[in-house]
C-alpha cells in the first residue's frame, strides 16, 4: 500500500515557551497525544497569531493553565470541532415509507458514523427489510418521504458503493462459491488486501470452494454470501438478517466480521427479529414498531 499523501489533522497544540514569553509553538498532530516532536507541522509564532492560526485550523483548541515552572508545557488543545468532522457514512432525516398510501415505517432519523454498527430490531412486518431496501436505493422514495445522505451527499447522487445482503443471497445455485465470488468481485471490485480464497476460508467454507451452491446447506450459502460482502471494497454494509440459518459458530463469525469491519472504519446496519442478540461492543439499537393497528 502506498503511504497517504497527507494525514488528517485531528488536534492542534499551542505551547508556550515559558510562562513569561509571548512566543508560542503551534503544532498539528494526528492524535490527541501528539507532542511537539511528533508534530506534522510546527510554526513558531508570536503572541496572538498563534491563537488565530489555531482558530483558522477549524479544530477546537483549549489552552490549559500555564504551568508554574517556566519552560514546561502548558498547552494544549484537542478535540475535533463538529464542523470539520467527516460527515456520517449514512444519515437519514424524517424518513418514512408507504406503499400505496399505507405507511410502512417512519418518520425516523439516525446517523451512522464510521466504526458503528446499528441493529434494527422489530417484529415481523415492522418494515426492517423495507428500510434496508430503501437505504440501499432499491426502493424509490416518494415525495416528502424524507432524505437519505451518504457522506453528506444525497443518496441518489452518491458515488459511494455499498454492500447489500438481502434474504436472497444474490448467488447462483449452479455455480460454486468461488465462481460466484469471482462475479461479485468483478462487478463491484475487490477490497485492497482481500482475496476470494481468503474470504472463503474466513467464513469457514474451506473444502466447499468448488462445490456447486445447489449442494450446500442454507447456512453454508449464507456464509458464501457473507464472503462476498467481506471482499467488497465498501465502507457501508447493509445486512438483512445476517444471523438467519447460521449455527452458534456462525453467529460468532458474523459478530467477528462486523467488529473487524467497524474497527477498519466501516459501518454496518443489520436487522434482527429479536431472537438473536449480537455480541458486538458498542452496538446501537433501533426499534421499529408496527404501524397497523
Amino acid at each position: 500500500m502506498t503511504p497517504p499523501r497527507y494525514a488528517v489533522a485531528s488536534s492542534v497544540g499551542l505551547r508556550q515557551k515559558t510562562s513569561q514569553s509571548r512566543r508560542w509553538c503551534f503544532f498539528v498532530g494526528t492524535s490527541d497525544k501528539t507532542n511537539e516532536s511528533q508534530s506534522l507541522l510546527t510554526l513558531r509564532v508570536h503572541g496572538r497569531r498563534a491563537f488565530r492560526l489555531a482558530r483558522m485550523s477549524g479544530l477546537k483548541y483549549r489552552r490549559l493553565k500555564p504551568s508554574a515552572e517556566p519552560g514546561t508545557t502548558s498547552v494544549l488543545s484537542m478535540r475535533q470541532s463538529p464542523r470539520t468532522a467527516p460527515p456520517p457514512l449514512i444519515e437519514v432525516r424524517q424518513l418514512c415509507f408507504s406503499r400505496s398510501d399505507e405507511p410502512i415505517f417512519g418518520p425516523m432519523a439516525f446517523a451512522l458514523e464510521a466504526g458503528e454498527v446499528l441493529l434494527v430490531e422489530g417484529a415481523n412486518g415492522s418494515g426492517k427489510t423495507t428500510l434496508l431496501r430503501v437505504l440501499a436505493g432499491l426502493l424509490e422514495l416518494g415525495e416528502d418521504a424524507g432524505e437519505i445522505l451518504r457522506e453528506g451527499v444525497a443518496a441518489a447522487e452518491s458515488q459511494q458503493a455499498l454492500a447489500f445482503l438481502g434474504h436472497a443471497s444474490g448467488l447462483k445455485l449452479d455455480l460454486s462459491p468461488r465462481e460466484n465470488l469471482r462475479f461479485t468481485t468483478r462487478l463491484g471490485g475487490l477490497r485492497a488486501g482481500a482475496s476470494i480464497h481468503a474470504a472463503l476460508l474466513s467464513v469457514g467454507l474451506d473444502g466447499f470452494e468448488d462445490t456447486p451452491m445447489r449442494y450446500l446447506s442454507a447456512g453454508q450459502r449464507k456464509r458464501a454470501a457473507l464472503a462476498g460482502i467481506l471482499s467488497a471494497p465498501v465502507a457501508l454494509w447493509l445486512l438483512d438478517e445476517p444471523y438467519a440459518n447460521l449455527d452458534q459458530e456462525g453467529h460468532v463469525l458474523v459478530d467477528r466480521l462486523l467488529e473487524t469491519h467497524a474497527a477498519r472504519g466501516g459501518a454496518a446496519i443489520i436487522t434482527s427479529h429479536g431472537m438473536t442478540s449480537p455480541a458486538i461492543r458498542g452496538i446501537r439499537r433501533l426499534r421499529m414498531e408496527c404501524h397497523h393497528e
Binding site: D174, L175, R182, F183, R186, L187
Partner: peptide, 23 residues
C-alpha cells in the same frame, strides 16, 4: 472504488455462460 465497466460486463457474461453450460 468499483471495478471497470468492461470487467463487470464480461464477468456477467462469464457467470451466465457457466450457468447455461451447467444447464
Amino acid at each position: 472504488m468499483s471495478s471497470p465497466l468492461g470487467d463487470a460486463f464480461f464477468g456477467l457474461l462469464a457467470r451466465d455462460a457457466i450457468g447455461l453450460w451447467r444447464r
